[in-house]
Design a protein around this nucleic acid. Structure first.
Lengths: 202, 202
DNA sequence: GGTAGATCGAACCGATCGGTACGACCCAAC
DNA sequence: GTTGGGTCGTACCGATCGGTTCGATCTACC
């Protein structure tokens, strides 16, 4: 039965729901762990529709990764902004948000980095590189606001903490303290270049 | 031609050379990027030999990962020990060693973590967890020697830096500064809980 | 009401997957 | 010299891979 009897034939909507369903399955089982046929089943679409929208499995993967990168960066940026203007509070909010993510049942590391690890070539590699670049932009901004003399370097150190925490939380986190540990380390680094306001005022 | 005319027919040696060749190829192309047939070609063995020694592709992967974990831990431990007894020097030596690794042409991240990312289940997951545990043991030891009041936590923070640096070096390292940045962050964290000897003496 | 486009399910394609079987052959030990 | 086991090359197995094609069918729009 084509075009299920009461369906609202909307290509844009179809494409987006396919993207959403594929995102979940590809994250759970890995890029090479799901075949196109199974992907179609889960997505609720036929192969023809999938290929018309995305051209190939690789095209679908690229779209999934790009959308996910956009969503994650927006999410973490909003978490930082919601903490107000103070750099320490913003940095703390970033790692608190990460901690919430790590504690989710299906957590499995960073989908973008995982994808680039599985397919060490385009499009995954390019998306991953850009993704880390966007993280770096956010973190370097916090470092600069905190008065760091080398915000670029401190930003990279915070990025290393962020990505390291994500890996460690996935593979070795018996007590679920990874995000808190990383947060403490990040704040300590921030304090090194920019003494805490209280001490500075004293 | 079976048993190439001048071969010394030594099962142990055969197994080890297969392991070595498989290690290279599986690291370069990923666990799912190389088929058993191609693996046999590169290894210089027949399928029958491979399956007698390792039982399955998964068995081969498990053996490769275990051997690699042993080698890496030994290598990084020896790098630390060669730097003498001083905790700061040992920690610096660890990240200097990592920097040399990152700069190698074929660098592609941590093989063990990559494997666990690709196959998010046993045996890769267990080996990866144990691997990070062994890293943690080394780093917590350095933290304890430095007089940290919470060596376990500082060790985990150093582990986060180590794994984060490996990820960032693989996916976003335009200027090759990742190891140096991580090293500086690690030393700063170490100095926080244990002021540098010079300042302490003054 | 007619038409163009979106979608379905299923059949089908060649290639490759992990794994097995087999006959031939060479080495090592007795 | 005979025997037993390690190894080779190759053919083969069923399953699955990513991708194509097609007729049927429904919606959206005029």
């Amino acid at each position: 039965m084509p075009v299920a009897k009461g369906t609202s034939l909307d290509p844009v909507r179809t494409r987006e729901s396919m993207l959403a369903a594929a995102t979940v399955l590809l994250y759970e089982r890995g890029l090479d762990g799901v075949g196109v046929s199974e992907l179609c089943k889960a997505v609720g679409a036929s192969k023809e529709t999938l290929y018309r929208h995305f051209g190939s499995k690789e095209g679908l993967v690229a779209a999934v990764l790009q959308a996910r990168s956009d969503r994650v960066i927006r999410w973490i940026t909003e978490a930082a902004e919601a903490a107000g203007p103070e750099p320490r509070a913003r940095l703390a909010a970033v790692f608190d948000a990460l901690g919430g993510w790590y504690a989710e049942p299906g957590f499995r590391g960073c989908a973008i980095v995982n994808a680039a690890t599985q397919h060490h070539h385009d499009p995954a590699r390019t998306v991953a590189s850009a993704h880390l670049g966007r993280y770096l932009e956010l973190l370097s901004g916090i470092a600069a606001d905190a008065g760091s003399t080398r915000p670029e370097r401190l930003g990279r150190q915070l990025l290393i903490l962020l990505e390291g925490a994500t890996v460690v939380a996935d593979h070795h986190d018996p007590d679920g303290t990874t995000a808190a540990d990383a947060k403490a380390a990040a704040l300590a680094l921030l304090a090194t270049v920019s003494p805490s306001p209280r001490k500075q005022a004293a």
